[in-house]
Every structure is written in structure tokens, then in C-alpha cells.
Design a protein around this nucleic acid. Structure first.
Lengths: 209, 209
DNA sequence: ACGTTCAGTGAACGTGCGTACACTGAAATT
DNA sequence: AATTTCAGTGTACGCACGTTCACTGAACGT
């Protein structure tokens, strides 16, 4: 537009699309996605309201795109965890560390999932529920490869995975609520997350006998 | 207005107030409280929009009243559980039964709490968070009186209470999503809720040693 | 070089919203 | 019986919304 005209048409379009997504994500942080209006989003993105339709057919469409982006972030987190050598040394300590770090870096995405999981547009809500179920299954597969766990039944592994993920979502909600720089509160959340994960693992040990 | 004029002014006012609350609760079930408008509520309640202000100063005000009503329902549930003789025979089985039964009977209130806990008006959200924390503490006090638990540390009891309540909220979300009459799905939820509660209790047994 | 494509524009529309204000009429008070 | 109170009415307002449509002009394909 004003500054760089050295952009191909396709790239410029993609840039605007992303600006709309970013605006929607940020605005939904303060007030919830469902009450963010199309006009607010385009205003924030720096385009005229009607330009919106060049990229999305409705706000629901935007919501679904944000679900996709958010779960990409989430999957990146477990990939991160799998690469980390500490994970194998002590999976619980490592998980708590990674959880807090990644959530802090991606407050918007995690907040979006936690918030819109239970409310807002039915379409967006269902998409999140589906993705979360899928994510739990994926994590279950990953857990099943761990020593000590490989002997559990499929249903048990899934149950453990579900407990971990729900705990993760809950702790993520808390991390998002923390003001920047309060590392003491972060440590407290890590501690509680570790305690709970340990408790669950401990329960499973006896569960099998 | 039309039918019974045999009502005192105060009683009639209370009746309208409750009609507004009922309307708001029902409408928020399909779409989320924050997107329910003042005009929709009064339409549903059978009064003119401006009459709203005779009872509430804003929709936030209505939301807070609904939080109050919802937690009254929740507290009635644990009072119910405490009276039930089965509770002492097997607290886990009894809890699962009571949870499903009470949630089924009060879908609207439980749904309201589960939904508005993370989204919607900041005021309403914070009120729910506060009430939930309080509820967890109350349950912790109740749990601490149980045999086998009375030796745990305060923090441990609180942690167990938190795990139970979060599990309860999650299972309540599921019960609400069940179509009426699908007792098979209900039984499945009860089974899973029992498994998880048992797992947590099991973990605690070793935790202490 | 030239015609086509299409991301972004700008004006206009109908609608539902929250809220103000002056009102009415029956219940409550005197 | 006369007066006051006040829950509910009806009109009217300005505003933000989603969506329509005809448009512009730079990047693109030829």
C-alpha cells in the first residue's frame, strides 16, 4: 500500500489475511471471540470492512482458522518435548517446564483454546473439542511408548492422557492469568502441576496390581 | 397482569425478576451469556425492555445473580451427598451417582458455570472463579473429616479437592451434552468418573508413605 | 504494450441494540 | 376516600453492526 510495493500480489493477500487473524486473536483475548465483530477486526487489521470477504466468508471461518493455528502451536509443544533429552530423564519435570515456557510464549493461542472450548460459536467449540480429543489420542500413543507404561491397557493410557491434557489446559489457564515477570507464581504452578502429575502416575502404579 | 391480580406488589415484582433470570439462563444455554441481549431477555420474560431496569442495572448484574443461584444448586448437591448414607459406605460410587443425577436435573445451572467460567463478561467470570475456589476449599474441609484422609496435610487435601472439583466440572460438561434418555452414555460417564476418582485416591495412599 | 484479474475501497441499506424520558394505573399508605 | 408509590408501558434517539454493490488501480498474464 504505502511503504513496500515490492510485494507480490499473493504475498500481500496472505499478509492481510494474517493481519485479520492476528487482530481477531488479540481482540478475542479481552472479550471472547464471539463478541468480536467483523468491523472491529478489519479496523484493527487496517482494512475496510468489506475487504474481509476477500479472505473469509464469516467470523466463524476466522474462528476455525484460529483453531487450526492454535493446535499447530500445541503440537509444536509436544514435538518440542519429545526432542528434549530431559524428557526421558524425568518426563514430569520436563513436562512442567515445557508447559509453562510454551504457554508463556503463546498466551494468545492457549487462551483461545481454553476460552472458546466451552463457549462462543458452536462451530468453533465443536472444532476445538474434536481437536482436543485427537490431541489426547496422540499423546496416548506417545505415552504408550514409554517404559513402565507399555504394559497398560489402551483405555488406561487414554485415561492418563486425558487427565494430563485436562490438567494442562487448566494450568495453561492459570499461566495466562499471571502478570509478566512473576516467576514466583510460575514456579508455584509448575510445582502444583508436577505434584498432580506425580500423583496420577503413582495411582497408576498400584492400579495395575 | 392479565390473569391473577391476587398478587401483592412485592410478589409480582419478584415473579418478574425471576422470569428475567430464567429467560437469561435459558437463552445463554444456546449461545453464551455474553451474547444474550437485554431486549431478548425481556422479550422472553414477557415485559417491555425498559422494565428491565426496575430489577437490574445491567446484564452483568443478571449474570452475577445467576452465579449466585448456580452455586446454590452446587452446594445443595454436596449437602445432598453428605446426607446420603451411601456416601460413607463408598464415597466414590455415591459421588458419581449424585453428580450425574444432580447435573441432569440442573443442566442449565451447571452449564452456566462450566461455560461462563472461562469466557464472557470479566465480572461474571471472576465471580465464578472466586466461587469455585471457595467451593474447593469447602469440599476440602468436608474431605478432611473423612477417615484415612484426616492425616493428610492441608495442602494435599486441597489438591485432592481441586482435582475432584475440576473432574466434576469436566464430567458435568459431558453430562450436559448427553441427549435425554441415553442412560448408556450416562453409565459410561459414571464409570469414567469413578475410575478417575479411584485413581486419584490410590495415588494418595502411596503419596503419604 | 495491453487487456484481465482481483485485493481493497467507499457509500448506502436495514436491523437490533442500550438507554432516555414522560406516561399510566393499580396497589399501598394515609 | 384521597394521596402517594412504583412496576410496567410506549416512543424515540443515536449507534454499531453485517452485508450489498459498483468502483479503482496496481500486479499479472499474454
Amino acid at each position: 500500500m504505502s511503504e513496500t510495493t515490492a510485494l507480490t500480489r499473493q504475498a500481500q493477500k496472505e499478509r492481510t489475511r494474517q493481519a485479520i487473524l492476528d487482530a481477531a486473536l488479540e481482540l478475542s483475548g479481552t472479550v471472547g471471540f464471539a463478541q468480536v465483530s467483523l468491523r472491529q477486526v478489519t479496523r484493527e487489521a487496517g482494512v475496510v470492512p468489506t475487504a474481509f470477504y476477500r479472505h473469509f466468508s464469516s467470523m466463524d471461518d476466522v474462528g476455525l482458522a484460529l483453531v487450526g493455528q492454535s493446535f499447530e502451536t500445541l503440537r509444536a509443544m509436544i514435538r518440542d518435548a519429545q526432542r528434549d533429552p530431559d524428557t526421558f530423564a524425568d518426563i514430569i519435570d520436563a513436562s512442567a517446564e515445557i508447559l509453562v515456557r510454551v504457554v508463556k510464549q503463546n498466551k494468545a493461542h492457549f487462551g483461545f483454546v481454553a476460552r472458546e472450548r466451552t463457549s462462543g460459536s458452536p462451530l468453533v467449540r465443536e472444532a476445538i473439542q474434536r481437536e482436543l480429543e485427537l490431541f489426547i489420542s496422540e499423546l496416548a500413543v506417545m505415552l504408550a511408548r514409554l517404559p513402565n507404561i507399555d504394559s497398560w491397557s489402551g483405555e488406561d493410557v487414554k485415561m492418563a492422557s486425558g487427565l494430563f491434557v485436562r490438567n494442562m489446559v487448566y494450568r495453561a489457564e492459570q499461566v495466562i492469568g499471571i502478570p509478566d515477570g512473576r516467576t514466583d507464581l510460575e514456579e508455584d504452578i509448575k510445582r502444583k502441576a508436577r505434584r498432580e502429575m506425580r500423583l496420577i502416575v503413582l495411582g497408576f502404579r498400584d492400579w495395575k496390581s
